[in-house]
Amino acid sequence: MNLILQPVMVDTGEEGEACLVFAEGWLVAVLVRLSDNHAGAEGFWFLEKGFGRLDCPDPPSFSDLECAQQWIREHLEIHRPPRWPGDQGHT
């Protein structure tokens, strides 16, 4: 699955470094880089908002963007909706 990350600034009251995550052209998540305020998790990428299948009550943080993308791919593949452009439904 092709993921595209687009850097943005998000107003969380912290430093703001973030990225939008697109899967097959659909916005699926917003990841925010945690500031030094989060002892032990500073620099981690927090799933600030997941859409659809990525919407979870206790969103995780990832040590780097590679880990974040792997988690996103795994969760999207579990129940891939048959509505994305070019999709033929479940395979």
């Binding site: 969380t12 009251g13 927090f46 969103p59």
Partner: peptide, 18 residues
């Protein structure tokens, strides 16, 4: 606190700092 309030630890930390 996060488990009690239905929040992430990240949000709890942010709000306490606020």
């Amino acid at each position: 606190l996060a488990d009690a309030l239905g929040l992430s630890t990240v949000h709890v930390n942010r709000v306490l700092q606020d």
